[in-house]
Amino acid sequence: MRTLLNIIWLVLCGFWMALGYFVAGLICFILIITIPFGVAAWRIGVFALWPFGKKITQKESAGVGSAIGNVIWIIVAGIWLAIGHLMTGIALCITIIGIPLGIANFKLIPVSLTPLGREIVSADDPRVPGQGF
Rank of each mutant, 00 (worst) to 15 (best):
3 T>C: 01
4 L>A: 14
6 N>E: 04
7 I>G: 00
7 I>M: 08
8 I>D: 02
10 L>E: 07
10 L>T: 11
12 L>S: 10
12 L>E: 01
14 G>T: 07
15 F>Q: 07
15 F>W: 13
18 A>I: 05
18 A>K: 03
19 L>S: 09
20 G>S: 09
21 Y>C: 15
21 Y>V: 00
22 F>G: 07
23 V>Y: 11
23 V>P: 05
24 A>R: 14
25 G>D: 13
25 G>Y: 13
26 L>T: 15
26 L>C: 14
27 I>D: 08
27 I>W: 14
29 F>W: 15
29 F>G: 09
30 I>A: 11
30 I>G: 00
31 L>C: 14
32 I>W: 12
33 I>T: 07
34 T>D: 11
35 I>Y: 06
36 P>L: 13
37 F>G: 01
37 F>Y: 13
37 F>L: 04
37 F>S: 06
38 G>Q: 01
39 V>I: 15
39 V>G: 01
41 A>E: 11
41 A>I: 00
42 W>E: 04
43 R>T: 11
43 R>C: 03
44 I>G: 06
46 V>F: 14
46 V>L: 13
46 V>N: 08
46 V>I: 12
47 F>L: 13
47 F>V: 02
48 A>I: 04
49 L>E: 04
49 L>C: 13
50 W>K: 03
51 P>H: 04
53 G>S: 00
54 K>Y: 12
58 Q>A: 13
59 K>I: 01
60 E>P: 09
61 S>A: 15
62 A>I: 05
62 A>R: 08
63 G>T: 11
64 V>C: 12
66 S>W: 07
68 I>Q: 01
69 G>S: 10
69 G>C: 09
70 N>G: 11
71 V>S: 12
72 I>T: 09
73 W>D: 08
74 I>F: 13
75 I>P: 01
75 I>M: 09
76 V>D: 04
76 V>Q: 01
77 A>D: 10
78 G>D: 08
78 G>L: 10
78 G>C: 10
79 I>G: 01
80 W>H: 12
81 L>D: 03
83 I>Q: 07
84 G>E: 09
85 H>Q: 12
87 M>H: 00
88 T>R: 11
90 I>W: 05
90 I>F: 09
91 A>R: 07
92 L>Q: 06
93 C>Y: 02
93 C>D: 00
94 I>L: 15
95 T>V: 15
96 I>G: 04
97 I>C: 11
98 G>K: 10
99 I>T: 10
100 P>E: 05
100 P>I: 06
103 I>T: 04
103 I>P: 08
107 K>A: 11
111 V>L: 12
112 S>C: 11
112 S>Q: 08
115 P>L: 10
118 R>G: 02
118 R>P: 00
120 I>A: 04
121 V>W: 04
122 S>C: 03
124 D>R: 10
125 D>T: 02
125 D>G: 03
126 P>R: 03
128 V>G: 00
128 V>M: 05
129 P>N: 05
131 Q>I: 13
